[in-house]
Design a protein around this nucleic acid. Structure first.
Lengths: 109, 109
DNA sequence: AAGCAATATCGTAATATTGCGATATAAATA
DNA sequence: TATTTATATCGCAATATTACGATATTGCTT
């Protein structure tokens, strides 16, 4: 008891949930936004910009990477992260599907 | 220590994270999908369709409602849920922004 | 009124996440 | 080689989430 039951859901459902979950933390939204605006795609800069300790940010970056939302490459002794569009496209499309395919409010019940 | 630091991030960031977090569980993705396809917008049907106990589903529905992803109305002794598009539009737009505004992979570092 | 059906809430055990100090690692530089 | 710089990992305490049995609650139906 207590553990999320992933085995009873199919792969797509689990994958969507996993990506959404990675976005489901303010620090990680803030990191994504920073990388987007290129204020800081360098790890060090993120640590300076965000009000969190370095190990905490490192941990959040790892989670974003795991979910396929960012990709990291080494740029002369620094880690440089960039947005990975694939994961994002997946949830975006799912949201769009929910919006477009679900019955209008007045048609449901 | 241990609690998510929401106070150090601004409202929009917290709001986006909160919506994404609500989507970040396979059961809740499954519920959203069921409501969308209208296989079951009725709570009871969800309980029958999904491999989770009734209190668990009730709890997940509450979370989805809290995040503004679904809205519930009473339909002769039954709870009927429908997709609430506003929360979805918000993350969708944010994803789109991330995809469109972030520099291309080859332009970063 | 008694029973039933649908849903919500309570309480709690199991598990997961968050945040960070301490510490490792690895590359650049003095 | 010693130091500094940038990042990752470990370990742990605090907190949050998940799942569900037991138990309300509310509105039929008999």
């Amino acid at each position: 008891m207590g553990a999320t039951k992933t085995d009873v859901f199919d792969d797509r459902v689990n994958r969507l949930a996993s990506v959404a979950k990675a976005m489901g933390h303010p620090a990680r939204i803030a990191i994504l936004t920073q990388i987007m605006t290129q204020k800081s795609c360098i790890n060090k800069d993120l640590v300076e910009e965000l009000p969190l300790a370095q190990p905490t940010i490192s941990q959040h970056l790892k989670e974003l990477k795991r979910a396929g939302l960012i990709a990291g490459s080494i740029d002369e002794n620094r880690m440089c992260y960039c947005i990975d569009r694939d994961g994002l496209k997946e949830i975006m499309q799912y949201c769009q599907e929910l919006i477009a395919e679900s019955p209008a409010d007045d048609q449901c019940c």
